[in-house]
């Protein structure tokens, strides 16, 4: 697949991180292992390692985000990189300067890595395709397509709390249609060999043929969460109420909100996850979000380590490919 070749160098190492789809189990495991080794960095008094010292990371956020941008910024800083944050409204790029021109300008300032969030699916792929060699692109969420660093931090969380993926049943609940998180989670769980992936949602919030990704669809949440090991709740955007997708928050909560009653149907040691920010009383009951089986804040914590792992691996992959292209040129002479 094109995405795969775009994000790997000739040695099969990561040089961009755009999408989980198409990556190997070994590579995902390497990301998780590397992330594990970075978790301790956050516990040190001096929370820094020098892996990206001297490199410039630009957080290019075309869509508002505080949390994701902050964790990327922290991850880059803990790797000793210099970080620039750019919050750009997409209207600015569509009306005046084109996305291409903006990229060329940033490249001229010798940026080494772009962390991109964009409302259009495929925008990071587009950037990766046209960016100058040696610049790494990390997808921080594109449209409803992919949010691969979120999916990897979710996998890190599941692995730390549940161990191997082979015996796990995972339920993903809520607005699958508009969720880049759900799509990346499904790919990651599939690649890592999860036993079963269940999607729980009304028909209006399910994209067509989603089961082709290797998941089973449930409309009734009580059937869907029965005996699962992991329950992942998705955020429901308020604007979905206005677009004839759902009748009301109340009805959604009654049918698809995670309550103590519904949680009882899952395995007794099932963990509860949510990519945040949570809507208490819409997709999750407040008490459930705060209970001891909820690992929502652990996700945030692992998020920094996982992003450190991905950024350092992509940068190393870029350096590796530029080294081999230099040696190729040497060979020609």
């Amino acid at each position: 697949m094109q995405n795969t070749s775009l994000q790997l160098n000739q040695l099969g190492q990561l040089k961009h991180f755009l999408d989980v789809e198409g990556l190997s189990k070994e590579l995902l495991t390497e990301i998780l292992d590397t992330a594990d080794s970075f978790i301790s960095v956050g516990k040190q008094q001096v929370k820094k390692v020098p892996l990206l010292r001297g490199t410039t990371v630009v957080n290019l956020f075309f869509e508002a985000s505080t949390r994701t941008r902050t964790t990327f910024e922290l991850a880059a800083k803990r790797l000793s990189a210099d970080v620039i944050n750019m919050n750009i409204s997409t209207s600015a790029t569509s009306k005046g300067e084109s996305l291409m021109d903006m990229l060329r300008n940033l490249e001229a300032m010798d940026a080494d890595m772009f962390v991109v969030r964009h409302e259009n699916s495929g925008a990071p792929h587009f950037i990766a395709e046209y960016v100058t060699p040696n610049v790494a692109v990390v997808n921080a969420g594109d449209g409803r397509h992919a949010h691969p660093t979120q999916a990897m931090l979710d996998m890190a969380t599941i692995r730390r709390h549940k161990g191997d993926f082979e015996n796990l049943s995972v339920a993903i609940v809520g607005d699958i249609m508009h969720s880049r998180v759900a799509r990346s989670q499904i790919h990651a769980l599939k690649i890592l060999g999860a036993k079963e992936i269940r999607l729980i949602s009304p028909e209006t919030l399910l994209p067509p043929f989603i089961e082709n990704l290797g998941a089973t669809v449930y409309h009734d949440m009580r059937d869907g969460v029965a005996d699962v090991d992991v329950v992942i709740m998705l955020r429901l955007q308020k604007e979905r109420m206005q677009s004839a997708l759902l009748p009301s928050e109340q009805e959604f909560f009654n049918l698809y909100g995670l309550t103590e009653t519904k949680l009882k149907l899952a395995k007794s040691d099932a963990i509860i996850m949510h990519p945040g920010p949570i809507n208490r009383g819409v997709e999750i009951q407040s008490e459930v979000a705060d209970c001891d089986r909820s690992v929502i804040l652990n996700q945030v914590n692992y998020g920094i380590a996982v992003r450190m792992a991905i950024m350092s691996m992509a940068m190393a992959g870029q350096n590796q490919s530029s080294l081999s292209s230099i040696s190729d040129k040497g060979g020609e002479k």
Binding site: R183, P207, N212
Partner: peptide, 13 residues
Amino acid sequence: HEGYMATRLGLQG
């Protein structure tokens, strides 16, 4: 087209 490819690529069908 509203099909599997649209779902996979996250594009509006």
